[in-house]
Nucleic acid binder design. Sequence first.
DNA 1: ATCATATATGCCAATATAGGCATATGAAAT
DNA 2: ATTTCATATGCCTATATTGGCATATATGAT
Lengths: 120, 120
Amino acid sequence: MINEIEKYRALGDLTRFRIARILLKAGKELCVCEIEDILKIHQYNASKHLNLLKRSGLVEERKEGRLRMYKIKDNNKFNQYLIKSIISLESQSDNGLKNDFMNLKKRLTLRKDNKVVVTR
Amino acid sequence: MINEIEKYRALGDLTRFRIARILLKAGKELCVCEIEDILKIHQYNASKHLNLLKRSGLVEERKEGRLRMYKIKDNNKFNQYLIKSIISLESQSDNGLKNDFMNLKKRLTLRKDNKVVVTR
DNA sequence: ATCATATATGCCAATATAGGCATATGAAAT
DNA sequence: ATTTCATATGCCTATATTGGCATATATGAT
């Protein structure tokens, strides 16, 4: 249960919330460099926040070559409710986060054959 | 949306999570002194954490005489999912929080006619 | 008006957190 | 083996957070 509290805490930071939000919206794994680019954050911050999200159990990581692919974990009830809570906010446009989804879409079109193309 | 992130943050602290959990389990308003007693925490901490929970929009307050009655707000989808996430953890007994529910039950039996009896 | 009591709040110290920066790691390519 | 590149990590500083304590506020009782 203490572990689950870490998940609330993980989402209680704007940057991590934005990461979770685009991972969810993407509906697929994203690599660190894509996340950096979409959210316009520094590499080291993307990496650090992803690490915390991973440790909390909200996100999982897979190595693919030199990339690390991250995605949301939805394999348990608790995470599923948190996911629903995030999705329930999508309709709210009263925020400065509208660009994240646009950038996500744009970035995903850069992929070739659904494979990440690294462009820094 | 930024406001909703405060709700995650609010639940991302063990003491506040425990408060939310017993408010939910109680299914009714509790006053500060009851919460102190149930969770065995100091008055000023109960008060401070309740204030943060209130500001986040997860909890609402009502004055009744010199008591302040607090309860969970479940009037919106986002809160409802958070509530479900909390409830989904109830089955987990692998935590040190089992006493909270016992103390809640015990404390509520002290009420007369469902009215708070202050006993410090 | 005064007192008692439930709750809130301001201040302090210890600790945690986030971002910035430099550097390390580790896998792929040459 | 060396280089390149994606990502991670250690260190630093500024800021935020938490609990403790003392005290203020506000309501009800006398």
